[in-house]
Simulated assay, not measured.
Amino acid sequence: MASEWMPWGERDAAAYVAVPTERDDKYSRGVLGIVTGSAEYPGAGVLGVEGAARTGLGMIRYLGDATDLVLARRPEVVTLPGRVQAWLIGSGTDSSDLGLLGTLFADALASDEPVVADGGALEMVAAAPRAGVIVTPHYRELSRMLAAAGERVSAETIATTPSVWASRAADLLRVTVLLKGSTTFIAEPLGARFAVTGAPPWTATAGAGDVLGGVLGALVATHADDVFESGVLARLAASAQILHATAATLASRGGPIVALDIAEALPDAVRRVLEVRVD
């Protein structure tokens, strides 16, 4: 039976931030494969990479359709295929026109690595769910996912009762669900349930969800050995949301922000959360 919705805060999130030691190298710190961005929405690729890189991990392999823009912003990113510990797929893509990206999504979902799925990859997950997958839809995307699984519910209904539908979707789709909103609800199938608040309303801006995907991808890659244990993926998702909300608060200081501001504030957000851990 599913548990009650539990709050999640900075002290909780601190336990899920991987801090490197002198024995680590770029591989042991986690390698994230990213297949995001498209010709129509290349910025999603840049923002996801920024979110991941600034959260902290050893390497990013970017295989999406915004390579030139990503390298212009983050020249340390590797653009060749190779071993990864986790995947981030789908942000900034349209499920109706995937082309080669669809093959890359399918490969990631067929792999043994955990997957963070968004955007154009969501309906592929609904059609073939598996363990170790977390989806990060907004209300409209969750409505389409549920329709693909035979459950008809409007985006308006989901927005009215998001906790009900995050829980229902996790159980029906058999994947962990992070339903984005002013309160973010995270549910694993028949298991952990977390509710995360604290992001300023200015966070509702284009691309903020792409940054969140990168944050979550980084946390999953740095905890890949533990992801398949019960409740861990949901806790990583709640921790990613805390880091994202903290970064947004630090960037905003009461004023408007854009998505890149959130990404650039992530190192300070990580530092703040780690300071809570040692208090």
Rank of each mutant, 00 (worst) to 15 (best):
residue 68 D to F: 13
residue 68 D to K: 09
residue 72 A to L: 11
residue 72 A to T: 07
residue 74 R to F: 12
residue 75 P to R: 01
residue 76 E to W: 13
residue 76 E to C: 09
residue 77 V to L: 08
residue 78 V to T: 11
residue 79 T to W: 04
residue 81 P to Y: 02
residue 81 P to Q: 00
residue 82 G to A: 01
residue 84 V to D: 04
residue 86 A to Y: 07
residue 88 L to S: 03
residue 89 I to V: 15
residue 89 I to G: 02
residue 89 I to T: 01
residue 90 G to N: 05
residue 91 S to F: 04
residue 91 S to A: 13
residue 91 S to M: 02
residue 91 S to H: 06
residue 91 S to I: 00
residue 91 S to K: 07
residue 92 G to E: 01
residue 92 G to M: 00
residue 94 D to L: 09
residue 94 D to V: 02
residue 96 S to I: 10
residue 97 D to A: 15
residue 98 L to K: 01
residue 98 L to Y: 09
residue 98 L to C: 08
residue 99 G to L: 10
residue 99 G to M: 09
residue 100 L to C: 05
residue 100 L to K: 14
residue 100 L to E: 14
residue 101 L to P: 00
residue 102 G to M: 01
residue 103 T to V: 14
residue 103 T to R: 15
residue 103 T to K: 15
residue 103 T to W: 04
residue 103 T to H: 11
residue 104 L to Q: 15
residue 104 L to G: 04
residue 105 F to S: 06
residue 107 D to G: 04
residue 109 L to F: 07
residue 110 A to T: 10
residue 111 S to E: 02
residue 113 E to R: 15
residue 114 P to A: 09
residue 115 V to F: 13
residue 115 V to R: 10
residue 116 V to Y: 05
residue 118 D to L: 06
residue 119 G to Q: 09
residue 119 G to N: 04
residue 120 G to C: 00
residue 121 A to H: 13
residue 122 L to E: 00
residue 122 L to F: 08
residue 123 E to M: 08
residue 123 E to T: 15
residue 126 A to Q: 07
residue 129 P to L: 12
residue 129 P to R: 06
residue 130 R to G: 03
residue 131 A to I: 04
residue 132 G to E: 05
residue 137 P to F: 10
residue 138 H to N: 11
residue 138 H to D: 03
residue 139 Y to A: 15
residue 140 R to H: 11
residue 143 S to V: 03
residue 146 L to N: 09
residue 146 L to S: 05
residue 146 L to K: 08
residue 146 L to I: 00
residue 146 L to E: 03
residue 146 L to Q: 10
residue 147 A to L: 14
residue 147 A to N: 10
residue 149 A to E: 03
residue 150 G to D: 09
residue 151 E to L: 14
residue 154 S to W: 09
residue 156 E to G: 04
residue 156 E to V: 05
residue 158 I to K: 07
residue 158 I to R: 09
residue 159 A to I: 05
